Simulated assay, not measured.
Amino acid sequence: MSQKTESTSHSTKGAYVTGGQEFTRDTNYIEDRITRDGAASGDGGPGWPVEPGRYRLVAARACPWANRTVIVRRLLGLEDVISLGQPGPTHDARSWTFDLDPGGADPVLGIERIQEAYFRRFPGYPRGITVPAIVDVPSGQVVTNDYAQITLDFSTEWAGYHRPGAPDLYPEHLREEIDAVNRRVFTEVNNGVYRCGFAGSQAAYDSAFDRLWTALDWLEERLTGQRYLVGDTITEADVRLFTTLVRFDAVYHGHFKCNRQKLSEMPMLWAYARDLFQTPGFGDTIDFVQIKQHYYLVHEDINPAGIVPRGPEPGEWLTAHNREALGGRPFGDGTAPGPVRAGEEVAAGHAAA
């Protein structure tokens, strides 16, 4: 097992505010990987071989980091080889719970909280109990919660089990550019909205706000002349940006005070986001009700009354975007995924309609 450690601070929510009142995300994850050769980790820990049916992805619909893994799993057609467990939209200090499942327990793992899978491997695990996490079903132990690596490994290590027509989300000739775009999107946008929302001082907030909107303006300009972030097909970079954009007007604009503009007021980004939303594998994973419940109920320090807003109208995500005029092929030489797997559909009334 390879696990990053940090002695200065930790949080069960995977984030903290420093003495300087600036939000900092705890990026110390369990770095174990599931690989084709099942090689042991660098510190002599166990190896985890690719093996259909052995692992369960635990990914809450509400969480943007977990949402990425659900999208990539669906685009690549890995539903038959990696099962999916979905906690409810809220959690407490002890972790996410399977409160939506019958009896309040995951039907495969038999646990009420994802925390139990962490503790089975690391008793008293001191770091963030986060999703997404991959659990080894036979032992009930967590394998990894390194969300950035999980999706890359779905594209590469699990390639032998992709569906016919699966897109190449991480093409070798574009990886350097994808990685560069991903770094900026993560620091300035994916994490940037949290830096605004959890700022502990006006100065920290002002700095975070300026950084976020500098990056969003860069993306608006970048997407003016091209349909996707890198190349002419959907890649890992698009998945990572999408899960923040789809939550922007519903949560980040008001709840996190990212309110210079709404996403719907940025012509290129709004059209780009709707283009992806209407692409099979993206919008059909989005549960707007759970997303709002998560942020507005869990963040009691920001929203002590626990009021969940009714808007915005999700049907706007289905309006025409006209991005086809820029060319590009969503799935390259591949094809769109088929219907959502039975039992994994977004609940009626929770999606755009």
Rank of each mutant, 00 (worst) to 15 (best):
residue 191 N to S: 10
residue 100 L to T: 12
residue 196 C to F: 06
residue 229 L to I: 00
residue 3 Q to C: 14
residue 102 P to I: 01
residue 343 G to M: 09
residue 191 N to F: 09
residue 30 I to V: 12
residue 49 P to H: 02
residue 208 A to D: 00
residue 19 G to R: 04
residue 263 L to C: 05
residue 275 D to R: 13
residue 270 W to E: 08
residue 338 G to Q: 05
residue 140 G to Y: 05
residue 86 Q to Y: 04
residue 319 T to F: 01
residue 134 I to V: 14
residue 272 Y to N: 09
residue 86 Q to C: 08
residue 315 G to R: 12
residue 96 W to A: 01
residue 245 L to K: 04
residue 238 D to L: 07
residue 346 V to P: 05
residue 209 F to R: 13
residue 320 A to L: 09
residue 262 K to P: 03
residue 310 R to Y: 00
residue 337 P to H: 05
residue 288 F to W: 02
residue 51 E to F: 03
residue 5 T to M: 13
residue 100 L to E: 14
residue 174 L to I: 12
residue 69 T to N: 06
residue 232 D to K: 09
residue 89 P to W: 05
residue 149 Q to N: 13
residue 12 T to R: 15
residue 158 W to Y: 13
residue 209 F to M: 06
residue 234 I to E: 11
residue 32 D to E: 14
residue 84 L to S: 06
residue 159 A to P: 06
residue 1 M to E: 12
residue 102 P to N: 11
residue 175 R to G: 03
residue 175 R to H: 01
residue 98 F to M: 03
residue 286 I to N: 10
residue 328 G to Y: 00
residue 70 V to A: 13
residue 82 I to V: 15
residue 149 Q to D: 15
residue 284 D to C: 11
residue 105 A to C: 13
residue 82 I to T: 08
residue 343 G to T: 10
residue 101 D to Q: 13
residue 63 C to W: 00
residue 325 A to Y: 03
residue 247 R to D: 11
residue 151 T to Q: 11
residue 266 M to D: 01
residue 274 R to T: 05
residue 248 F to A: 06
residue 272 Y to Q: 08
residue 339 P to R: 04
residue 104 G to M: 10
residue 299 H to Q: 05
residue 334 G to P: 00
residue 200 G to A: 08
residue 153 D to V: 00
residue 295 Y to N: 00
residue 28 N to Y: 14
residue 167 P to C: 02
residue 82 I to H: 10
residue 136 D to R: 03
residue 201 S to C: 03
residue 169 L to V: 08
residue 26 D to Q: 11
residue 290 Q to F: 04
residue 293 Q to P: 01
residue 152 L to A: 13
residue 66 A to C: 01
residue 226 Q to P: 06
residue 180 A to Y: 08
residue 30 I to N: 08
residue 173 H to D: 14
residue 2 S to C: 12
residue 182 N to T: 07
residue 341 R to Q: 15
residue 122 F to H: 13
residue 226 Q to K: 11
residue 47 G to W: 02
residue 103 G to R: 08
residue 91 H to F: 12
residue 137 V to G: 02
residue 174 L to V: 10
residue 269 L to D: 07
residue 87 P to R: 12
residue 254 G to F: 00
residue 162 H to M: 04
residue 4 K to T: 07
residue 73 R to L: 03
residue 26 D to P: 11
residue 349 G to Q: 04
residue 53 G to I: 02
residue 124 G to C: 04
residue 278 Q to N: 12
residue 91 H to C: 07
residue 256 F to C: 05
residue 331 F to C: 06
residue 261 Q to T: 09
